[in-house]
Amino acid sequence: MHTPIDWEPIRVTFWLTLRLAGITTLLLLLTGIPLAGWLAISRFRLKPAIEALISLPIVLPPSVVGFYLLLAFSPTSAFGNWLLQTFDIQLVFSFNGLVIASLLYSLPFMVHPIQAGLENLPVSWREAAYTLGQSPVKTVWKVLLPNCKPAILTGVVLSFAHTIGEFGLVLMIGGNLPGQTRVASIAIYDEVEQLHFETAHAYAGLLLGLSFAILVLVYSINKRVTI
């Protein structure tokens, strides 16, 4: 028997998903650009170790990262208990916890494209800026970054899309609380587990359409930038 789809929970879940992805991407943009700029021009001896640390989420299973973040954020841990006692903040099974976890897990998807874009620019541009008295920071912000728009856009899209599609990490940290931590990827799994395939199709179709629209927009903008 066909069961009508209840669109209200879907609307709430998608709004929560988009809000999580939007806030995470904005924070990653604010933190990722300075970090990528520093990595692109730095000759720090421990730079490879820092790059490896940033890249860990790419090679580690999301459940591994989620497990250790769960231990760190738990009120029974020193850090989690300090947050709870000092600021009355609980990160486990909360939207704020999802944001912080997504920020850490999606960091390489923002940093790597921008860093690669900066490193691929002609070295002469940087040397000319230094000759004119520009500091390394001003060189990155005023000379290099304006010529890395496609790389920045790629980082934004990858971070946004990766946050939308993440499953294991958000399940470990946020669980499945409707209206609070239940994002679209968790909702699809939940609906399939309950054999509600019509609702699962609705979630999956919306994610598919959104992903396709984002990619079309990115390719269109990149084509205009490179012309």
Results as ranks from 00 to 15, higher is better:
residue 66 G to Y: 04
residue 78 A to S: 14
residue 87 F to Q: 13
residue 102 S to T: 13
residue 170 V to L: 08
residue 27 L to V: 12
residue 157 V to R: 04
residue 12 V to D: 13
residue 136 P to C: 00
residue 218 V to W: 01
residue 101 A to G: 14
residue 58 I to D: 00
residue 36 A to S: 13
residue 216 V to A: 04
residue 195 L to P: 02
residue 149 K to R: 14
residue 62 P to G: 15
residue 182 R to S: 06
residue 147 N to R: 15
residue 88 D to M: 04
residue 94 S to L: 02
residue 62 P to Q: 12
residue 167 F to A: 02
residue 98 L to Q: 10
residue 119 E to F: 00
residue 200 A to N: 04
residue 162 H to R: 15
residue 105 Y to A: 09
residue 147 N to Q: 15
residue 98 L to K: 06
residue 25 T to V: 07
residue 210 L to G: 08
residue 195 L to Y: 03
residue 102 S to D: 09
residue 174 G to Y: 02
residue 105 Y to S: 09
residue 133 G to H: 14
residue 16 L to M: 04
residue 147 N to F: 10
residue 121 L to I: 10
residue 225 V to R: 08
residue 26 L to Q: 11
residue 73 F to G: 08
residue 227 I to Y: 05
residue 69 L to V: 10
residue 180 Q to W: 02
residue 181 T to D: 03
residue 93 F to V: 08
residue 23 I to R: 11
residue 223 K to E: 04
residue 116 A to C: 06
residue 106 S to F: 05
residue 134 Q to E: 11
residue 207 L to M: 10
residue 102 S to P: 10
residue 25 T to D: 02
residue 189 Y to T: 01
residue 183 V to M: 11
residue 161 A to L: 13
residue 38 W to E: 07
residue 225 V to L: 14
residue 143 V to L: 13
residue 155 G to C: 01
residue 102 S to Y: 02
residue 64 V to S: 06
residue 80 G to E: 05
residue 41 I to W: 00
residue 158 L to W: 01
residue 164 I to T: 03
residue 26 L to E: 09
residue 111 V to H: 02
residue 9 P to F: 09
residue 127 E to A: 12
residue 56 L to F: 08
residue 21 A to T: 01
residue 114 I to P: 07
residue 43 R to V: 09
residue 27 L to Q: 13
residue 172 M to H: 08
residue 143 V to T: 07
residue 130 Y to P: 03
residue 211 S to Y: 03
residue 112 H to G: 06
residue 148 C to G: 06
residue 31 T to M: 07
residue 83 L to T: 15
residue 61 P to L: 06
residue 158 L to C: 08
residue 226 T to W: 00
residue 103 L to W: 13
residue 15 W to E: 05
residue 11 R to S: 01
residue 165 G to W: 05
residue 20 L to P: 09
residue 60 L to P: 04
residue 195 L to E: 05
residue 155 G to W: 00
residue 70 L to W: 02
residue 55 S to N: 14
residue 190 D to M: 13
residue 34 P to L: 02
residue 135 S to P: 05
residue 187 A to R: 09
residue 143 V to N: 07
residue 25 T to C: 07
residue 151 A to M: 08
residue 220 S to G: 04
residue 112 H to I: 15
residue 115 Q to R: 03
residue 208 L to K: 13
residue 148 C to Y: 00
residue 132 L to S: 12
residue 185 S to F: 09
residue 72 A to L: 15
residue 38 W to P: 15
residue 183 V to W: 11
residue 150 P to I: 06
residue 148 C to T: 11
residue 51 E to H: 00
residue 218 V to K: 04
residue 82 W to D: 09
residue 164 I to Y: 01
residue 112 H to A: 12
residue 129 A to W: 14
residue 65 V to M: 14
residue 96 N to Y: 08
residue 100 I to S: 06
residue 91 L to P: 11
residue 4 P to K: 03
residue 187 A to S: 04
residue 176 N to L: 10
residue 173 I to N: 11
residue 8 E to H: 09
